[in-house]
């Protein structure tokens, strides 16, 4: 009787152990030891290694003297770009000979440039020329649009503008994505990232339009990095402010340019009507995406009477930028 009981207890204990082990493996969070959970499917992919971006991203050394924000106003885009970047130290502060520079515009939708849903191709071209003038050995332009990449790059005018200005254009293919690790991120601690255009890159510049956004209220330079994510990124719209704060953590650029030549002030992010677009004639350059976006919120979207969207505070809490741009050094310049 005792032997039977002992055997029963042993078997029950073994069975319980196996059940607990199986439960742990299948249900424990993916970053716990021995967990086999695979929320984004990346664990199941063969032969893919995780990647990390440089510790301080692609940022250059901060300056205690130069303006934080360079704001230029006018019509001539070459002058606008030179003046805005010039105000924060000039292109020579950021790009040295032999740098490989990636420029990330917003090419999210199949829209003509005039509709303001994508980066102004003339601004992109002027930026490429400026970067090349600093001696960059290669300039790349990349984005993973919402709609068909080929159509988006063609109809927005971005492909033609980039190539004619001397850049290589990277449109995404499934094999171009690798898992990027972003320690501390809430949603994208490990997530598929449009990696191929980053191989060998030494500087990263974002250039994004100023847009109203149906969910996060405004899409500018910080939200622009969404276009580097792969996978089922639409699920992040459940916590849109959280994911934008993650994007600020994921990529620390060399600098950003907020393209306020056209402002999609309503019906964003897709737009469609010229009645939703106003001519802004303004560019903002900064090493601080949040500060540039905060300026865009109040001065270009003209929502200075409304509180900033929640992603600003979430990003600032992580020390990723300054949201009160009026406390910063701003240099403004009118050009032709």
């Amino acid at each position: 009787m005792n032997d039977d009981r002992r055997r029963f207890l042993k078997q029950a204990g073994l069975a319980a152990g196996v059940a607990v082990g199986a439960g742990w493996a299948s249900l424990a969070p993916s970053n716990w030891p021995l967990s086999l959970r695979d929320p984004d499917g990346e664990r199941g992919k063969p032969g893919r290694r995780s990647l990390v971006l440089p510790k301080n991203g692609y940022a250059v050394e901060a300056s205690s003297l130069l303006p934080h924000l360079g704001v230029s106003r006018g019509v001539d885009v070459d002058l606008l770009v030179k003046a805005a970047v010039g105000a924060i130290g000039g292109i020579g502060r950021f790009v040295q000979p032999r740098d490989v520079v990636l420029i990330k515009p917003n090419v999210a939708f199949e829209r003509a440039a005039a509709l303001g849903a994508t980066t102004n191709p003339d601004v992109l071209a002027a930026l490429i020329r400026l970067v090349r003038s600093a001696g960059a050995s290669e300039v790349r332009v990349a984005d993973n649009p919402i709609e068909s990449p080929e159509s988006c790059f063609a109809r927005s005018g971005i492909r033609t503008a980039a190539i004619e200005a001397g850049a290589r254009v990277f449109t995404p293919h499934p094999s171009d994505f690798s898992v990027l690790e972003t320690p501390g991120a809430t949603h994208i601690a490990r997530w598929p990232f449009f990696w191929r255009p980053f191989v060998g890159v030494t500087k990263v510049i974002g250039v994004a339009p100023v847009k109203d956004h149906n969910l996060c209220r405004a899409s500018m330079t910080t939200k622009n990095w969404y276009g580097l994510l792969g996978g089922r990124r639409n699920q992040f719209h459940q916590d849109i402010h959280g994911i934008i704060a993650d994007l600020a953590l994921m990529l620390r650029p060399t600098f950003v340019v907020l393209d306020g030549t056209r402002v999609l002030f309503r019906s964003g992010p897709t737009g469609g009507s010229l009645a939703d677009v106003k001519l802004g004639g303004t560019l903002v350059a900064s090493t601080d995406s949040l500060a540039a976006d905060a300026y865009g919120w109040s001065e270009l979207l003209e929502r200075r009477d409304e509180a900033l969207p929640a992603y600003f505070a979430k990003s600032a809490e992580r020390g990723l930028g300054i949201t009160d741009w009026k406390t910063l050094r701003v240099k403004e310049e009118q050009v032709a």
Partner: peptide, 22 residues
């Protein structure tokens, strides 16, 4: 139980391929 554990492990390493589809 062992078969279930093996299945869980296998499924974890062979997720639905549509997850990665373009």
């Amino acid at each position: 139980l062992a078969a279930i554990a093996l299945w869980v492990a296998w499924a974890g390493r062979h997720p639905d391929p549509t997850l990665f589809a373009d």
